[in-house]
Amino acid sequence: MKDKLKMQVTSHYRILRSPARGGGKSQARKKLIRNFLIHFGIILFSIVCIYPLLRIFSVSIRPGDRVISTDLSIIPDSAALLSYARLLKETHFLRWLWNSLIITMTTSFIGVSLASTAAYAFSRFKFPGKKFALLLLLSTQMIPAGMLILPLFLMIMKLGLINTYLGMIIAYSVSSLPFSIWILKGYYDTIPRSLEEAALVDGTSMIGAFYRIILPLSTPALSIAFLFNFTMAWNEYLVARVVLFSSKQYTWTLGLFELQGQFITQWGMFAAGSMLVTIPVLLVFLYSSKWLISGLTLGSVKG
């Protein structure tokens, strides 16, 4: 027995020290080539991903007489901020941004807080109707997007909330709830129960364990859910189009559409507006991307 074990260990040792695994010049070169290929691939994909954004940027800073051209350079000759100035001066653009921000932040907060507790129930408890409720959640995602607009509009009208923030918030707040619950449930499932059991032994309640242990550990998933809610509400325009009708209450999607309708050839102003709208979303992403992916649970179990 002991001999067998010894033999195994030595053979493993040999494998670990073999030239195919570590050390050696060819290995270093191989690694270099591999790294280069990885970087090359990622950079290629990155360019594909951001090129349209750069194009919009370049259109937005083109001088007024050359907005439409076959020019592919990112910084055009005689760049100017004329489109931005016109956008801010001639439209309610800032007001549209403010409207969108209020509606979006409120709905995201409501959505994530509702989802976080519900997902906890699904992840940690067994109760009658659990499977049915999960199926119900999934089936709500299958309701075609254009389907609920008409009945929702009638409801909001009956409540007297047409053309208000509250009406929009009501219409949006649950729309991405099922997805948030699914994502959070999936994440809670990966957090080992031993953490909570330890907390329960230390004398906290189930709610306390949820609040003190599960929630802090699941910041990556919570931020994904929040971002998801945020982008959903920020980009929405089908519901906004029926609920809001006065130009001052518009969200930016409606505003930019109106811009496009009013000035058919004014790509410059549209591009400027698009840039200003895209920036806050990108900033939120930049700020929270460090939470998006991390090995938090792994670390906390190992100690």
């Binding site: 991903c49 919009i56 980009n235 999607t253 979303v281």
Partner: peptide, 11 residues
């Protein structure tokens, strides 16, 4: 790489 998802879909 996340830019297309982060960008507002309309834009």
């Amino acid at each position: 790489l996340v830019v297309p998802w982060a960008m507002p879909q309309v834009v």
